[in-house]
Simulated scan of single mutants.
Amino acid sequence: MNSSTSVSMWQHTMHHFSSTTLSALVLAYFMLLNCSSLILACTDTTLATILPNNGYYNTGTPDHILQGHEITSLTTRNILQCAGKCTGDELCVSFNYSPDSKVCDLNSETHTTQPASLVPQIGVEYYYYDWSKFTGCNFISPNANCVQFLHPRLPHGTTRIEFSVKTISDAFVVLSPENRVVDPDPMYVIDIGGNGGADIFVRQCKGCSNAFNQAVPNLELSDQHYRRFWITWDSGLIRVGKNQDTESLVEWQDPNPLPVDVHYIGFASWYTHIGDWQLHSFCDPPWEWQTQ
């Protein structure tokens, strides 16, 4: 069944469901659409792409609207199409939908980041992206010319990412204020396994020279087995660790911290290698994760 056929089926049955039931169907529908391969291509101009928005839109308080953070307002056929518009917009993290007028407002913020902006409005339903139900936990990075960013923006206050990766060397993690790569825009680019798998580098833009370089003897990157790492950042302090270790493998304090906030995280591999990633942040209950 293709996407257009499934949309027609949903439209045919929509009249038989309450608003609450329809909200649940929105979640299931977009889970099905996002169960596809995550090998994506970048253009030569952007050097970046957006991973599919894999997760749930959870309904907030009925008869409320998030006000003052509108990206765009449009009329859609139904709530499914409204959710699809938000899914396809790299800045959208929530939306307001009116079942009567079919007006769909895409928002760049949520009630968690802007609680005062959630105000009563009769007849409007407010939905937000729930990172706790994120399902885009496995993806492939083709090469270093293509940085793949998580979508949507990270939850407010995020300063840590945990992941496992299968690659022989050079697992790149990008901490960026935007979901794009345009040199020399400031961002932290962390290369785990540079120099043939032996070092960890940190750069302050994608094309910059290394601001930090340290040999790490026990990285043990492999293209056959996942290796688990964590990265934290805070006011220019970058720490990279492994497994459940509380001590970091490397730690670097940027003497001139970049004047940017980290809103997006991107992933890439070396030019001749493919990276196989498992994201643990937003995906694993703490009792389930393990190192392979």
Rank of each mutant, 00 (worst) to 15 (best):
residue 7 V to W: 09
residue 19 S to D: 13
residue 24 A to V: 08
residue 24 A to E: 13
residue 25 L to G: 12
residue 32 L to R: 15
residue 32 L to A: 13
residue 33 L to G: 10
residue 34 N to L: 11
residue 35 C to K: 15
residue 42 C to T: 13
residue 44 D to T: 12
residue 45 T to F: 10
residue 46 T to C: 10
residue 49 T to H: 12
residue 55 G to I: 07
residue 57 Y to V: 04
residue 58 N to L: 12
residue 61 T to D: 11
residue 62 P to W: 09
residue 64 H to Y: 13
residue 73 S to G: 06
residue 74 L to I: 11
residue 76 T to S: 00
residue 78 N to D: 14
residue 90 E to H: 09
residue 91 L to M: 09
residue 95 F to Y: 06
residue 97 Y to T: 02
residue 113 T to V: 08
residue 114 Q to R: 12
residue 114 Q to G: 05
residue 117 S to F: 01
residue 120 P to K: 03
residue 129 Y to E: 02
residue 130 D to N: 08
residue 130 D to M: 01
residue 135 T to S: 06
residue 139 F to Q: 02
residue 140 I to Q: 07
residue 140 I to L: 09
residue 142 P to K: 14
residue 143 N to S: 13
residue 149 F to C: 15
residue 150 L to Y: 11
residue 159 T to G: 12
residue 167 T to Q: 12
residue 169 S to R: 15
residue 171 A to I: 00
residue 172 F to L: 10
residue 175 L to M: 08
residue 180 R to W: 04
residue 182 V to S: 10
residue 183 D to V: 07
residue 185 D to F: 04
residue 192 I to Y: 04
residue 193 G to R: 01
residue 198 A to Y: 11
residue 200 I to V: 15
residue 201 F to T: 10
residue 201 F to E: 13
residue 205 C to V: 03
residue 214 Q to V: 08
residue 215 A to I: 08
residue 221 L to E: 08
residue 227 R to P: 03
residue 233 W to H: 15
residue 235 S to C: 11
residue 238 I to T: 04
residue 238 I to G: 05
residue 241 G to R: 02
residue 245 D to W: 06
residue 245 D to G: 05
residue 246 T to W: 06
residue 247 E to V: 09
residue 248 S to N: 06
residue 248 S to T: 07
residue 248 S to D: 08
residue 249 L to D: 01
residue 251 E to V: 05
residue 257 P to H: 01
residue 259 P to D: 01
residue 271 Y to D: 03
residue 272 T to C: 00
residue 273 H to F: 00
residue 274 I to E: 03
residue 275 G to Q: 02
residue 279 L to R: 02
residue 279 L to H: 03
residue 290 Q to A: 13
